[in-house]
Amino acid sequence: MPEHGRVPKYYTVKAQLVGLIAELGVGALLPAERDLAATYGVARSTLRQAISELIIEGRLRAHRGRGTFVAAPKLIQPLALVSYTEALREMGHQPGRVLVTLERVSADAELAGHLAIAEGAEVIHLERVLLADGEPLGLESTYLSYQRYPTLPEVLEPTGSLYQCMEQRLGVVYAEATERVETVLASPREALLLRGNPALPMLLMQRVSLDQQGIPIERVRALYRGDRIGFETRLRAG
């Protein structure tokens, strides 16, 4: 509650919209703004503020020229060393990937430190859009030492699972990882690849994975649409 003790008008409208969303169901078209504003007795600017927050939260989806629709629930992916492909299939969704970049570049000082290689050493850069049921969910950029995995570009299926390729084709076993999660705004290029709104917050995940000998396998920078996906993990005491 605000200090003055009054609930903002838009927030009251937002709560009413949440109830309407539950009644309408996934995929339903929201009534026109003018009708909703009249129903709730508020200005259209107040209504738009409530709708904007629900879009940011992933409860609604706006399509220019078509209207605003009730969104499907977010996908909730576990924070674990598992394949994106396996995780989505277990949730009943069809995974997919679109190759954006596959190249060899020189490692700068920061990347070299993460991969425990010399600065300037060649690395493989793999960038792909992650899909769920044909819809873009994330943009994943992965860097691996070319000296350690020189055959990777030849054995990797560009739209397949990197995790499975590393384990099944190259015999690399993922043992542990350090991962950091924060919120950011996408660049115009990233928003275009994700078919998202640059004004909406994204989830940025940065990870360094290690093998059983403690040698770095990869550094990953993955940008996910905060309106379509969330993450969960299990915590244990001690």
Rank of each mutant, 00 (worst) to 15 (best):
P2T: 13
E3T: 09
P8C: 04
Y11P: 00
K14T: 01
Q16P: 00
L17G: 05
E33D: 09
E33A: 11
D35G: 04
L36I: 08
A38P: 00
Y40G: 01
V42C: 11
V42T: 09
T46C: 05
A50C: 06
S52D: 14
E53A: 11
I56G: 00
I56V: 15
I56F: 14
G58M: 07
R59S: 13
L60I: 06
R66E: 13
F69T: 10
L81Y: 06
Y84C: 01
Y84W: 10
Y84P: 00
T85Q: 15
A87N: 11
R89L: 04
R89K: 15
E90A: 13
M91V: 03
G92K: 04
Q94R: 15
Q94L: 10
Q94V: 06
R97I: 01
R104G: 00
V105E: 07
A107Y: 10
A112Y: 08
H114C: 10
L115G: 06
I117Q: 03
H125E: 09
E127C: 05
R128S: 03
V129L: 05
L130F: 12
L130P: 01
A132H: 07
G134S: 10
G134R: 03
P136L: 04
L139K: 04
S141I: 02
R148V: 08
P150L: 04
P150R: 05
E154P: 00
E157R: 09
E157A: 12
L162G: 06
M166D: 07
Q168H: 03
R169C: 03
R169S: 07
V172S: 03
V172L: 09
Y174D: 10
A175F: 10
E179I: 04
R180M: 01
V181Q: 09
V181H: 08
T183V: 03
T183K: 09
P188E: 05
R189H: 15
E190Q: 15
P198G: 10
A199L: 14
P201H: 12
L204Q: 15
L204Y: 09
R207E: 15
L210G: 02
D211Y: 02
D211Q: 04
Q212A: 14
Q213E: 14
Q213F: 13
G214D: 10
L223Q: 14
L223V: 12
R225Y: 14
D227T: 06
F231A: 02
E232R: 12
T233H: 09
T233N: 00
R234L: 07
